[in-house]
């Protein structure tokens, strides 16, 4: 029930954000749409499950985001150099390693971070097993037990 309420408030805020107008009719329409969407999601049974707000250390997540952005920029610059280099010094590899996250939220954040960093793409994601395609051998070798892995694990809260 609490989760439905959070969803409803979030949907209404999203509506207000997108419309930016405070005419009574539009606000009522927004409320109606939010309730309709909430009913649909309840009927589809997709509000259930492990919810990020309770399984995530939000303070550490806020610290994690700038670090990830810095990491993305470094990796993107590396990939840019490889693409523009006349000889294209790439050495594609598939790396399999076991992440240390326990919760689904942690695994998803880790896998998404890997995919977001250019040069590495998570191909298969299962608890305890990641299959990653890396553009260079060095990038692939640095994945297992990386700083990203330990940082993602520290985001989790049991």
């Amino acid at each position: 029930m609490a989760r439905s309420l959070i969803t409803l408030v979030g949907l209404i805020l999203f509506w207000v954000l997108l419309s930016g107008m405070f005419v009574p009719f539009l606000l009522a329409a927004g409320l109606g749409s939010a309730i309709a969407v909430l009913l649909f999601t309840r009927r589809l049974d997709i509000i259930a499950g492990e919810a990020p707000p309770t399984y995530l250390n939000w303070f550490k997540f806020i610290v994690y985001c700038p670090w990830l952005i810095r990491e993305i920029m470094v990796a993107a610059w590396d990939v840019t150099k490889r693409i523009l280099h006349p000889k294209m010094p790439i050495s594609p590899t598939m790396v399999e390693f076991s992440p240390t996250q326990k919760t689904d939220t942690g695994l998803v954040i880790h896998a998404n971070s890997i995919t977001l960093t250019p040069g590495t793409i998570s191909v298969e994601v299962e608890p305890g097993r990641f299959l990653v395609h890396a553009l260079s051998r060095e990038g692939g070798a640095s994945l297992a037990g990386s700083e990203m892995d330990s940082r993602c694990t520290s985001l989790e809260r049991h």
Binding site: I72, M73, A76, V79, T80, I83, L84, M88, I90, P92, T115, L116, T117, P118, G119, T120, I121, H133, L135
Partner: peptide
């Protein structure tokens, strides 16, 4: 532009994705 060039220059599908991800992030 770099992402687009990577998409065209790279040798196979998986490496092309790395090129495209430059466009999508930076």
């Amino acid at each position: 532009l770099v992402g687009g060039i990577g998409l065209v220059r790279m040798p196979d599908f998986y490496t092309r994705m790395h090129g495209a991800s430059v466009t999508e992030t930076l």
